[in-house]
């Protein structure tokens, strides 16, 4: 639409600027707060411009100097925990779901449809709904306070299975037939043909799932009591509820900025593949 109506242009820009402001302002607040010293917050007002601290807050948070985080581990360690959790969840989900989608689409086995619908039904049961039974299972398996406990219960994914299923069904069946004639067995077909074709989808899913894993709050909160397994998201909330009314906003905001960084890096790094994976169909 190429139209030249000035008031429309103005309105459009106003709406967009408003949108940018709504998204951008909180980030600005967080960024500014992370450079101020704690004394700036005593008045109860958020500073709107950079303070004197510079990277001092970041250094203190990352190394947990003077126990600023109120726990025994540093932010860098917790970011590592978060990273492991997000990576294992994202990779695990992709591996499991691509394999189950492959089985559902390309193999004829008894109760194939039933299997699919069972997987599909789990969409109705996210972690939050089944949290108590899942906790019970993880506890009885002795997986509390471990990376396995943090990640395995979150790995099964109906959404990703469904996405791969749709993609596989859009791959012409003659491709599989050609591969069969070319002497490729099921595993070779998957490795040589299907996997390379799914790269864009995998990338798009990875971005979504990495962020999903990184942002997990409730589950790690529930199953970790050992501070060595705390994730960065958990500690933000702990800081807010810590102490005698003197909330260390500068430390909170510094941690927040740190917690925001990896997802941003993942999105920026995989932007191209991500968009391709969401829009591109057949070549």
């Amino acid at each position: 639409m190429v139209e030249n109506r000035p008031w429309l242009t103005v309105t459009r820009h106003l709406v967009l600027i408003l949108g940018v402001f709504i998204i951008g302002f909180p980030i600005w607040i967080a960024l500014v707060a992370s450079t101020n010293s704690s004394s700036e917050f005593v008045s109860g007002l958020m500073p709107l411009w950079f303070g004197e601290e510079g990277f001092g807050n970041f250094r203190r948070v990352l190394t947990n100097e003077e126990r600023v985080l109120g726990v025994s581990v540093s932010a860098s360690w917790m970011m590592w925990n978060s990273f492991i959790m997000a990576m294992v969840i994202a990779v695990g989900k992709i591996v499991i779901s691509i394999l189950s989608a492959y089985a559902i689409v390309y193999f004829r086995f008894p109760f194939r449809k039933t299997c699919f619908w069972l997987i599909f039904l789990t969409l109705m049961l996210p972690v939050e709904v089944r949290i108590l039974p899942t906790y019970e299972v993880v506890a009885s398996l002795g997986m509390l306070n471990s990376y396995a406990g943090l990640t395995i219960p979150l790995i099964a994914s109906a959404t990703a299975t469904f996405l791969f299923r749709q993609f596989f069904m859009s791959v012409p069946s003659s491709l599989m037939e050609a591969a069969r004639i070319d002497g490729a067995g099921p595993f070779k077909f998957f490795k040589d043909i299907l996997l390379p074709l799914s790269v864009n989808n995998i990338a798009a899913l990875f971005v979504i799932l990495f962020i999903y894993g990184w942002n997990q709050y409730l589950w790690p909160l529930l199953i970790t009591t050992d501070e060595n397994y705390y994730t960065i998201v958990m500690v933000i909330k702990r800081l807010m509820s810590a102490g005698e009314g003197n909330i260390p906003w500068n430390i909170i905001m510094t941690t927040t900025i740190l917690a925001m960084l990896p997802p941003v890096i993942v999105v920026l790094g995989m932007q191209k593949l991500f968009v391709k994976g969401l829009i591109e169909q057949e070549k």
């Binding site: 012409p172 003659s174 491709l175 037939e177 050609a178 004639i181 070319d182 002497g183 040589d192 043909i193």
Partner: peptide
């Protein structure tokens, strides 16, 4: 199919993209 020593040309070519 691979053991029958045949080759097939498909309507939609079925080339590996």
């Amino acid at each position: 199919p691979s053991e029958r020593d045949i080759a097939m040309v498909f309507q939609n070519y079925a080339l590996y993209p």
